[in-house]
Every structure is written in C-alpha cells, then in structure tokens.
Amino acid sequence: MTSLVIAGKTFHSRLFLGTGKFSSNQLMQQAIETSGTEMVTVAMKRVDLHTPEDNMLEYINKETIQLLPNTSGARNAREAVFAAQMMQEIFETNWLKLEIHPDPRYLLPDPVETLKATEELVKLGFVVLPYISADPVLCKLLEEVGAATVMPLGAPIGSNKGLRTKDLLEIIIEQSNIPVVVDAGIGAPSHAAEAMEIGADAVLINTAIAVAGDPNVMAQAFKMAVESGRMAYEAQLATPHREADASSPLTAFLD
C-alpha cells in the first residue's frame, strides 16, 4: 500500500480518528493504538474554574500522532481564525481541521465562510484541512487558496448514514490535486471500505468507533476495512456489467 503525504508529512495509516464521545480517556487511548492511526482530531473549551478534569492530552502519544485541532464551535471565518490561534497555543501545531457550522441541527459547514477562513489561515501559515459539504466546485476553490486537503462529508456528522454523497465524492476525487479525506457520516467499516475503494485518500472516523459497544474491536474493524478498501483501489477493481460474463469456459463437453 502506498503512503499518504499531506503538506509534506507522510502517513502510513489512512484512518484518521476523532477523539470525541468516548466514555473514557482510557478507551480513547486504546482505540487510538488499535486503529493504528497517525492523526487524531482534538478540540478546546473554556476552562471550568471550579472543576478540574482529566487532561486528555496525556493519553495521546504526540511522538507518533499528529494532532489535528478542530475549530468546532466557530460560526464564521472571524471566529475560526481566533479559534485557530488559540488552538496553536494549546496544541503547539499549525495543523488545523477547519470546521465552521453555524447550524446545530445538521452541523452542515458554511462554504462561504470556510473558503474565506481557509484563505486567511493559509496566509497565517496554518496547514488547513477544511471540513466541507461534498461540493466539487468548492473543493477546487479551496485547492486554489492553498488548502492541504479537502474533507467532504459522506453524510451529516454523527449520522452514521454512510456515503450518501457518493456520486459527488467520485467527482471530487477525480478532479482533486490534493488529498481527499472523507469526513463525517461513516457509520460502518463497509462505508469506510467503500470510500477507500472509490479512491479517497483517507477517512476520518469518530462516532462509529467511539460509541460502539466495544470501541477497541471496532477500531480494529475500521483499520482492516480502510486497508482492505485501499488495497482494492490500488489493485484496480473489476468494472461492473449489466449482463453475466462467464467465469468458466462455456465450450460444450457433454455432447
């Protein structure tokens, strides 16, 4: 299997993992290790001055894992740029999952503000991985302003519906000169394999692993699915036909 390169950095695993929704930091840590991931998303929140909590960063090995802070909570480009600068202070990385979704019901990303913020953040020296709807035109615009990848959704965040945007993802993958990471909506290993089979460069999974009955085993299942899907893509899949095409010789031998 080939490696993936984003902004000059090589990744051997094409499975990126979100760290939200795990019932404990220990389970999160286990899933990170089992999944073989080399990039995990993290977030930030205001400190509750009265309630000390566990420091989640202690559970992530920063020697082997690239942190990808997200700007979740930002409702426009201005807030996202502020969030990015705060993130850089905490996580000491200029990598960023740019996420601007003003509507809490569907959490769909705002394309105009995302493009604006990407342009500004790239100029400020950030490595920007924007979360977006599966819009091929937007993907090209983001590429032009210097996004490191595009991260189109398969379905709304946490919906587990799979690749509802498959036709558009195929166009994005065909046209993109930067890596395409399918983010959001992947609910089962088969969805992840499907994304990899159509040529996605990586997938980002959170809910499907974190809320599984056994997150550790599910992390293993996703690891295998992503590897399997990528191997199939690189080996070049057979094309579908409407009619049968015999696998055994049809020459007569009974007459």
Binding site: T19, T41, V42, M44, L57, N70, G158, N206, T207
Partner: peptide, 10 residues
C-alpha cells in the same frame, strides 16, 4: 479574559 484548554473532539 478567556482561558481555554484541550478537550476531546471529532
């Protein structure tokens, strides 16, 4: 003053 810390997130 805003003080922010790391948390898990997707």
């Amino acid at each position: 003053v805003i003080v922010i810390k790391a948390v898990s997130g997707g």
